[in-house]
Amino acid sequence: MALVGRKLDRLEETANMIGATAETLVLQADVADEAQIEAVFARAVNHYGQLDLLFNNAGTSAPKAAIDMVDLRHFNRVLATNVTGAFLCARAAFRQMKTQDPQGGRIINNGSVSAHVPRPNGAPYTISKHAITGLTRQISLDGRPYNIACGQIDIGNAATGVADNLNAGMLQPDGRTSPEPVMPLASVAEAVRCMAGLPLDSNIQFMTIMATQMPFIGRG
């Protein structure tokens, strides 16, 4: 297993949480930097000999603002991480999976329920997650001849670092601010494990996992 991200302390924290062994690589890189991504994928493949799975999980968001008030700096930063970063990682994985023997592998993209329905004042994030759906579909199509499967998991309210905001109250489309239910992070991990554990002749194309009572269907 290789863990890749910008913040080395968070990567090491994750490695400790999962009980990583000496075989686990902790690789610091900015997913939006082409040279850094090419280097970490080359190092991982050199270490393990092949690449079976990519979970495209890096993501960020922007300060909440109506679309006419969105700062271009924030928009570009979100797209750099959420779209360019996902593309660069998927491209590197696809190249390896296409040429290795045995051929093939699986790519799982982390979308969001915002890939289906937006939150108020969330244009940069919503746009980026709709782009992930396009990336997922394209990889699924282009990967068919090479036994490369691609799916997307769209995650709703989970007990991560943003749970405090959800508990405190989120702006709803009708103008109210209301707390929203969250689901255990373990539920998300189990869903990803389910997708990752399938044989390559089977694929979960799109999965939505969410807190049962959160506003999503008919959001707000």
Rank of each mutant, 00 (worst) to 15 (best):
T99A: 15
K129R: 14
Q96G: 00
R106L: 10
R95S: 13
S140D: 11
I108K: 01
S114W: 02
T84C: 03
K98V: 01
R106H: 13
S112G: 09
D142K: 06
I67F: 14
K129S: 10
L88N: 07
Q96S: 04
G111D: 03
C89T: 12
H116A: 13
P63K: 13
C89E: 01
R91G: 06
I108M: 03
R73V: 05
S61F: 05
I107T: 07
C89V: 01
R95Q: 13
V117S: 12
S114D: 14
G105V: 09
R106F: 05
R119H: 11
L135E: 01
R137I: 02
R95Y: 00
K64Q: 12
N82D: 09
L141I: 14
M97P: 07
R73M: 03
R137H: 13
F75H: 10
L135W: 01
I132C: 07
N121W: 08
R95K: 15
S114N: 15
N82P: 02
R77V: 00
N76F: 02
P118Q: 03
A62L: 11
I132F: 06
Q138M: 09
A66C: 01
Q100E: 06
S112L: 08
V78S: 08
R91S: 08
R106M: 10
A92F: 00
R95I: 02
P124F: 05
H116S: 11
